[in-house]
Structures are given as C-alpha cells and as structure tokens.
C-alpha cells in the first residue's frame, strides 16, 4: 500500500471517529428529547461516510476492487436514518414529551 493511501485512510478514520464521538457527546449534552434527535442522525451521517470512504480506499489499495458493499451500507443508512428519526419524533409527540424551555412553536397534538 502506498504511503499516500495510508495517510488518507488514517485521516478519514480519525475524522469519522471524531464526528461520531461528537454525535454521541451531543446525545448527552443537549437538553431535551427533540434536540437529542439531531445528534445521532446528523454528526453520525458524516462520521459513517468518512469511515466508509476509508474502507473503500483500503480495499482498493490492497487490490480487491472497489467495495460496492460499503457504499450500499451507507446508502441503506442514509435511507433509514430519516425514517427512524421521524418515527421517534412522532412517538414523542404522541406521548406528549415536553420540549425544553425557550422552544419556539409547539409540537402537534397527535
């Protein structure tokens, strides 16, 4: 493997790991349920994307062809994340989870 590929893989792994960590940290730091929805669906998207890219580069560099399955994983993740976020938000509104103080607007009655 060329040194350039190794640097690129390491950088992407660190970047992706940092973003996933920030997403998890957001889950703990943000004040209420609705704001916490943003952490895992968001920062994680970029985190997983970067880790997927590094995996594609790794398997291309060791000569196993371009990994289509990694791209598929990312596509599935991108397709399912909004649906689960939507279901979580709907369920929270249904059982009347309170939004934090200072939230503008109101959740809908279900």
């Amino acid at each position: 493997m060329s040194p350039f590929a190794e640097y690129a893989i390491s950088a992407l792994l660190l970047f992706g790991g940092a973003f996933t960590l920030i997403g998890a940290f957001g889950l703990a730091r943000l004040p209420d349920f609705y704001t916490r929805l943003h952490g895992p669906t968001k920062a994680t998207t970029v985190g997983v994307g970067a880790i997927m890219l590094s995996s594609v580069i790794y398997f291309s560099a060791i000569g196993e062809g371009i990994g289509i399955s990694e791209i598929l994983i990312t596509v599935f993740l991108l397709m399912t994340a909004p649906v689960s976020a939507n279901m979580l938000a709907k369920a929270a509104m249904h059982i009347g989870v309170k939004a934090m103080e200072g939230t503008e607007g109101k959740p809908w009655e279900q």
């Binding site: 943003h38 920062a43 939507n86 938000a89």
Partner: peptide, 17 residues
C-alpha cells in the same frame, strides 16, 4: 423532501399534516 430535511443537520421533519 422530508427525508432530505431529516438528513441535513440541524433539522428533523417530525410530522406531516
């Protein structure tokens, strides 16, 4: 559109009327 809004950071689409 709703999926796009949920994917872009900072916004989550919660419900459609």
């Amino acid at each position: 559109l709703a999926s796009t809004i949920s994917l872009t950071p900072g916004t989550v689409s919660a419900d459609v009327s």
